[in-house]
Design a binder for these strands. Structure first.
Lengths: 125, 125
DNA sequence: CACTTGCGCAATTGATCGGTTGCGCTTATA
DNA sequence: TATAAGCGCAACCGATCAATTGCGCAAGTG
């Protein structure tokens, strides 16, 4: 069950839930009222968000209030930062890497590209 | 075919492709060499990224160089900004909305919540 | 002109997704 | 105590996904 935050926010309903919980904690029923889906459907989305550690439970009698762990959202930001760094480096520092990769289009020289591979989290050999 | 950028970057391979193309344009084969998947698999991911207008084609003889449309990445940033705005407003300006939502837990008053609903892009009635 | 290379397209398959339905447990309420 | 409300769990279903395989076409190369 390889579930990351990017998969979590891939679904529009889940993004909406995140937004709702950004305002304040909520019960599943309260969330469900905001959409035209069933409570169970919402509950499933909650489960997925829980798997990503994006939510916290708070039992209150027979109700459960779900809190958003806003700090986890930083994962997205971090990825975006990495991306921006690559874009910025594109014309400056990483000219070498660029050159290497350019000449590499048909050859196999996993020297500097390895760095990039690490960044991109590719599962290369 | 409801395909948005969030779905595009939900897949780790596609995120890696985005990172690769952030450095410079590439042919499908060049990309495929970075992963341990087939060219066709990569090609499919490219297709998905194309659907999201995240890529540009540049035919060069029998090769096709794919360029990243970096500007499209702003969509993610924008969503994150919206999220952050909600988080920031949580304790300040949107106290009213918060109150409304609170009292609304069981009733149906689509007045102010509509604003939020719009933000969260929920498909409510 | 044969042959290889780079690529897209189509069909197939197993896995996962998003949703519904039905059930049962626990906690409130009349 | 009987009833209702809030919720999770499990089974099921149609749709989509990711990847493979096989094919055909256009562009280079001997």
């Amino acid at each position: 069950m390889r579930r990351d935050i990017f998969q979590a926010i891939a679904d529009p309903t889940r993004r909406a839930i995140v937004m709702l919980l950004a305002v304040h904690a909520m019960t599943p029923n309260a969330m469900a009222e905001h959409f035209d889906t069933s409570r169970q459907a919402v509950s499933k989305h909650i489960h997925i968000l829980l798997e990503c550690d994006l939510l916290d439970q708070e039992q209150q009698g027979r109700e459960i209030r779900y809190h958003l762990r806003a700090d986890k959202m930083k994962q997205i930001e971090q990825w975006l930062e990495q991306f921006k760094a690559l874009m910025a480096a594109r014309f400056t520092q990483l000219d070498e890497v660029l050159a290497q990769l350019k000449s590499r289009t048909n050859t196999q020289t996993p020297t500097n590209p390895t760095t990039l591979t690490t960044i991109t989290k590719a599962r290369k050999t």
